[in-house]
Design a protein around this nucleic acid. Structure first.
Lengths: 333, 333
DNA sequence: TCCGTATATCGAAGCGCTTCGAAATCACCA
DNA sequence: TGGTGATTTCGAAGCGCTTCGATATACGGA
């Protein structure tokens, strides 16, 4: 494996000149630079990551903490991850994978100077990792918005806006009785921020039109969706517009509506919030606000990089939702 | 951030003694070791990863190349990843994430000494990465089995055995007409090894009982499953046992059988191969051979670690399948 | 008592890079 | 022609750790 010394010898310059050619931190004359670059190419030189990290106090690695606990929405997680990796590479950084099982991993990675910055996914309202993250001596970016964001950098979909958008779509189509099939009761009880913000958005938008919303928590399974529909139609058969914020239950919801003689969209208009590539796999495709996981992951990296340049104050960035129609919203009959 | 020098001073020993206490590569007397360990604890010392990598020529990092291309089975990917990370941490290694977009990433990571070993997921029969992997100057483990495994370390589910097991389950229940709804035509045409091996296992097991198998490729969507069932029932209504090796289509298959008056299991017995946590989300749960992604990921790490100790010859490890019944197999009516 | 052997610890070199200050070179003008 | 400042390159120190050979100490046997 060639070293920077080999390159220097081949190009007939000093070690430091090669280093400056690579980093661009000092001006190097055109001819010298060309000789060095040629030597680098010919020797297929790649700087030793450890040596670089040691000398420069920068690892060029971002740590990414991914939730692996069961029940998590895998598709969307993968999108985030892909977005983070892609963006990180664009900044010439690599991504180190951490699991959520052990909070201490954050500190270990920082203390060992393994990573320059940390991105944490799936942050909850009262996340146990918040103290560590606040105390961390390097940039941290949270995907998800905790209750108290002071001093933190956060990014997420604007779930309140998504709730409003979904609801407005139904109302604009003429629906006057609207329901929300949301996250599981457990999520609401733990005050999972996305679930709460979403619900508040739906309720608020409906209130603007003088409407009330029937809110049903729902287990994140096919059966959960079926149960929620059964319950809804029993308690409130006049509902004609439905917002579904529960990806795993969506198929069950659609099927149950079908079997109840309320097929989408003739018998029930539906708007869902979910990961991309879900809406198409259903018996009846559903208008969707997809979580732009790739974009959000990219923004998280940008925020981390910015904070690596200069430490910035806390900031929460909420990405605006967009709705993709699939013909599941029709006027009420 | 404390350095090993701080620890040495605090414990009143030399630098090298601290290093040997940490690595255990030379015997250190009990009292000395205790003093050093106390100093480490009190200073919260963590060795600098870059310095360690530089001095020891070992980064303690495994690179993991994950497929992010669309259409991939996300759930199972996540299981692999989780298995790899968990196992890696058990060996005191971290995991660096690479995407499949760029083959050169493997070489870059190796040349920079960023990773000690590489694990590559979703390897195809004629994978474009095979040359790089064969030429690599450090251990590589493939998840998936290419056509020519010479000199390579591979691990995967034993799909042929899975095919035999699924088929035997149906035959033992009394079924004499059996079909396979498999991967997409495109997968078969590209000779995706898992698709082919699975099919061969099914066909072989059936042949042992003197039976033939109706094999249908199937698009990996809900609609694909519906289409496959329609086609099957049209062409071969006498089929009573079905093996489904197409996770995304499974829901469509089950629903289509339902609507065709052939509900599972009364009208059709079904065994599926899929990721865990899929079978339960269906209208009718289905007997499943789940891909043990977590285990396979762990084995991949073990293989990499073993090859870090001493280079071993090529080896392919196939994990035996296990079937979890969910009541979707009944005697033919 | 002295030597050989085993055990425990030390010291220094070196891993491959970055970075700072200084040296060398050059152009230009007085 | 010498001096000045700007431009380009060099040299050496140092980042924090590992590891090899050497030293120091202890112990048992002759």
């Amino acid at each position: 494996m060639a070293t920077i010394g080999d390159v220097a010898r081949a190009a007939g310059v000093s070690l430091s000149t090669v280093s400056y050619v690579i980093s661009g931190k000092r001006p190097i004359s055109q001819p010298t630079r060309e000789r060095v670059e040629r030597a680098i190419r010919e020797l297929a030189f790649h700087p030793h990551a450890g040596a670089q990290a040691l000398a420069s106090a920068r690892s060029n690695v971002i740590a990414l903490m991914v939730p692996f606990r069961p029940g998590i929405n895998v598709a969307i997680i993968m999108e985030f991850v892909a977005g983070v990796v892609t963006a990180a590479r664009a900044f010439d950084h690599d991504v180190l994978l951490l699991t959520q099982e052990d909070i201490q991993e954050i500190d270990r990675v920082a203390a060992r100077s393994l990573a320059d910055a940390v991105i944490v996914m799936d942050v909850e309202s009262e996340d146990p990792r918040l103290p560590s993250l606040r105390a961390l001596d390097r940039p941290a970016v949270l995907i998800g918005v905790p209750e108290d964001t002071s001093g933190l950098a956060c990014v997420d979909l604007d779930f309140a806006a998504a709730g409003r958008l979904a609801t407005r779509t139904l109302i604009d189509a003429g629906h006057r009785r609207v329901a929300l099939i949301g996250a599981s009761r457990e999520r609401f009880e733990r005050r999972a921020n996305y679930a709460v913000r979403m619900r508040d958005g739906v309720v608020e938008q409906a209130a603007r039109s003088g409407l009330e919303v029937h809110v049903l928590p729902c287990e994140p399974t096919y059966a959960g969706g079926v149960d929620a529909v059964d319950q809804l139609l029993a308690e409130d058969p006049g509902v004609t517009g439905l917002v579904v914020h529960n990806e795993a239950a969506l198929a069950g919801v659609v099927d149950a509506l079908d079997r109840a003689g309320r097929p989408v969209p003739a018998g029930m208009s539906v708007v869902a919030i979910n990961a991309a590539n879900i809406a198409e796999g259903l018996r009846h495709p559903v208008d969707s606000i997809t979580v732009p996981g790739h974009d959000i992951g990219g923004i998280a990296v940008q925020m981390a990089m910015a904070r690596l340049q200069q430490d910035s104050p806390g900031e929460t960035r909420l990405v605006a939702p967009t709705l993709t129609p699939h013909g599941s919203v029709a006027p009420p009959r």
